[in-house]
Amino acid sequence: MATIDIGLGRNIEIRDDLLLIAEMVAANSRVLDVGCDDGSLLAFLARHSNVDARGIEISQAGVNSCVSRGLSVIQGDADTDLVDYPADSFDYAILSQTLQAMRQPRTVLNELLRVGRRAIVSFPNFGFWKVRLDLLLRGRMPMTDALDAAWYETPNIHFCTILDFVLLCRDLGITIEQSIITGQTGKPLRHLGTGRVANLFGATGVFLLSRGDR
């Protein structure tokens, strides 16, 4: 099984993360995977849950590879292109391991919950103890196997912690329907909640969100 080091960056072994997200998606639903990369989640959902799965991917090479495999994917930028979709186009809008690379994470979060009735968001927790330790002891920006880009070339420009994310959801009136915190190995850590303990021991957070006004 894949090990998710400190779970930062997009090059983590996606399988565990992907399965956790897939489990949150109801069968026969409509899904938009924003930043769908090589389309493995889309392919999985289409195959196992009979989901009408679409994707947006920023890299044209990634798009072409997805389309060649029969997936419905367009080239686009989550920061700017979600606005094209009408409200409630999808049952779920998924943003996996991409929130921290958005120029406007707050806007994107709102957009996800406009085009999707629910959103599933996963991101690396910058409050994870190893990250804290790295900064505390070395005094350098954390770099690990998964987060292997130096600060000056990383696409990740808006890191947050689980606490930060929970507070933002509260500010935006977003309801957290379900949360799964995973540890360093990618395995879910049970009964941690979304508070200080989860923020210290969780490497990644996966959240099922809905609009508070519903």
């Binding site: 044209q60 798009v63 072409n64 979709y85």
Partner: peptide
Amino acid sequence: ASAANVSFV
């Protein structure tokens, strides 16, 4: 915008 099923390359 019409929520059609579209791929674009």
